[in-house]
Amino acid sequence: MTPTLRPLRGYEPTDEIPLDLERWATPKPMVEPQLILTEETPDDGQLRTMLTKVLEVLDGRRHIAQVRTLLADPIYEATLTRLRTMPAATRYQLYSVHTCWPTPNAVEMTGRLETTRPGHRRAQALTARMERRQGIWTCVFLRILEGRQA
Results as ranks from 00 to 15, higher is better:
120 H>M: 11
140 V>L: 10
20 D>I: 11
136 I>Q: 15
125 A>F: 04
16 E>P: 01
112 R>F: 03
95 Y>K: 10
79 T>R: 05
70 L>R: 06
127 T>C: 10
23 R>K: 13
54 V>W: 07
65 A>F: 11
60 G>H: 01
66 Q>C: 04
38 T>R: 14
89 A>Y: 10
104 P>E: 09
23 R>I: 01
22 E>Y: 02
59 D>T: 10
111 G>P: 00
125 A>T: 04
122 R>P: 01
38 T>C: 08
121 R>C: 11
113 L>Q: 03
124 Q>K: 09
18 P>N: 02
99 T>I: 10
62 R>T: 10
21 L>W: 01
95 Y>R: 12
44 D>H: 12
40 E>V: 14
53 K>F: 09
35 L>T: 08
35 L>S: 08
30 M>F: 08
100 C>V: 10
29 P>H: 06
103 T>A: 14
86 M>F: 09
47 L>Y: 03
20 D>N: 15
102 P>A: 05
112 R>A: 07
85 T>A: 08
101 W>L: 02
127 T>Q: 10
25 A>V: 05
83 L>A: 05
22 E>P: 00
81 T>E: 14
111 G>C: 07
81 T>A: 14
22 E>S: 09
121 R>P: 03
24 W>A: 15
27 P>V: 04
88 A>T: 08
68 R>F: 09
45 G>D: 13
125 A>Q: 02
68 R>D: 10
83 L>N: 05
19 L>A: 02
130 M>E: 01
36 I>D: 12
34 Q>D: 08
61 R>F: 05
36 I>T: 08
20 D>K: 08
125 A>I: 01
25 A>T: 01
25 A>R: 15
39 E>F: 00
81 T>C: 03
28 K>V: 08
44 D>T: 14
64 I>Y: 00
141 F>Y: 06
81 T>R: 15
44 D>M: 13
127 T>K: 07
99 T>M: 13
41 T>L: 07
118 P>D: 09
109 M>G: 01
33 P>E: 09
72 A>L: 04
136 I>N: 12
108 E>L: 04
69 T>I: 03
105 N>W: 06
125 A>C: 04
52 T>L: 09
24 W>Y: 15
